[in-house]
């Protein structure tokens, strides 16, 4: 852990990369939630047709 911290302190562009990945993880999680919602809609519509 200490080694990683020192590495990041020296190569701070990787900190920027971590920040970008965190932001994309947030966007990804929201999209995952949307995907779940759409799945639910598809299921309900199928059941409604029967």
């Amino acid at each position: 852990m200490e080694g990683l911290y020192l590495f990041l302190e020296k190569n701070s562009i990787y900190i920027v990369m971590i920040i970008v990945l965190i932001v994309w993880a947030g966007v990804f999680l929201y999209n995952l939630k949307l995907d779940k919602r759409l799945k639910f809609i598809e299921k309900e519509m199928k059941e409604g047709k029967k």
Binding site: V27, Y30, N31, L34, R37, L38, F40, I41, E44, M45, G48
Partner: peptide, 15 residues
């Protein structure tokens, strides 16, 4: 994201 999210939410509520 807001447009996709709000439209899907409203469709879900109506269903």
């Amino acid at each position: 994201m807001w447009r996709v999210g709000s439209r899907s939410l409203n469709i879900k509520e109506k269903l």
